[in-house]
């Protein structure tokens, strides 16, 4: 699988995650969201940016319960609720948001 982003071919694995993390761009993120018929808003970007920073610091995509806890700490409890995050990312805040953020699937996610 692959998508075309600004004339460059970006490879995806069989579940739609980027093969090379360095291929990520905002355009690539929106194209991945298009596959799920989702228009990325500022609220989505806030979570995506959070995930990319988390990965940069810890080299992992966090599990959902870790993500909610960490977001509560940084962006406030309203945004750290599962409800809020599932509304933004209906296929799962860890699974789907990580895909848009260009990260691997969270460890332990099936």
């Amino acid at each position: 699988m692959a998508i075309e982003v600004n004339g460059k071919t970006v490879e995806l694995d069989e579940e739609g995650y980027l093969v090379n993390l360095s291929d990520w761009s905002k355009e690539a993120a929106q194209m991945l969201a298009d596959q799920d018929n989702l228009k990325l808003t500022d609220s989505h970007w806030e979570v995506i940016t959070f995930l990319r920073d988390y990965y940069d610091e810890y080299q992992i995509a966090p599990a959902v319960r870790v993500l909610t806890k960490a977001i509560s700490k940084k962006l406030g409890p309203d945004k750290g609720s599962s409800k809020y995050l599932y509304e933004l990312f209906p296929y799962g805040p860890a699974k789907q948001a990580c895909r848009f953020a260009g990260l691997p699937k969270p460890t332990g996610c099936v």
């Binding site: 610091e57 810890y58 080299q59 992992i60 966090p62 599990a63 870790v66 806890k69 960490a70």
Partner: peptide
């Protein structure tokens, strides 16, 4: 090794 620092989140 950076990931060991995330263990407390877990």
């Amino acid at each position: 090794s950076k990931t060991y620092r995330a263990l407390e989140d877990y």
